[in-house]
């Protein structure tokens, strides 16, 4: 794996996977697969992934560690299977800041090369911050009602 870091809050990571671009893309968008690796840890006790995979759709992943629910959430900005997926990502419990994550997948030999770019969005550039809080409260209400 190679890692490039550019100025300040922009992270670029590349990794090769031995599966087709379609299968790799679906690992991000199929809740059954995503729940096993995305925004979770092997020590997590419970994990819920709600992924409304379409442009403008919201995603929420709730991970329970040591009895505490951690909520990661955002909105899909681009969905182009199997080449490109762009979404915002925030954890309002910890920070009002949002990041964008761009996943690009290209065929490489018998498998795929995945490039992930994460960029920090300054709060003034993120009109969805308020939406983020709203979505977290909605998720919280859902949990309480369940």
């Amino acid at each position: 794996m190679t890692t490039d870091t550019v100025l300040a809050r922009r992270l670029v990571m590349r990794r090769a996977f031995a599966v087709s671009p379609e299968r790799l893309f679906d690992a991000w968008t199929d809740p059954a697969v995503a729940a096993r690796w995305l925004f979770t840890t092997p020590d997590s006790q419970a994990h819920a992934a709600e992924l409304d995979v379409r442009v403008g759709g919201r995603w929420t992943i709730t991970d329970r560690r040591d009895g505490v629910d951690y909520v990661a959430l955002g909105e899909y900005l681009e969905v182009d299977r199997p080449r490109r997926l762009v979404f915002t990502f925030g954890m309002p419990q910890f920070s009002p800041a949002f990041n964008t994550v761009t996943v690009e997948i290209a065929p490489a030999g018998d498998g795929s090369m995945m490039t992930l770019t994460q960029e920090h969005l300054p709060p003034e550039h993120h009109p969805a911050t308020r939406d983020g809080w709203d979505a977290m409260f909605e998720a919280l209400e859902g949990n309480l009602a369940a």
């Binding site: 992270l11 990794r15 599966v19 299968r23 697969v33 995305l38 994460q118």
Partner: peptide, 16 residues
């Protein structure tokens, strides 16, 4: 985040 994604990709590779 370097560590975060690196660990996540390890798990993803194992899941796949």
């Amino acid at each position: 985040y370097q560590r975060f994604w690196s660990d996540s990709f390890d798990v993803l590779a194992a899941v796949l």
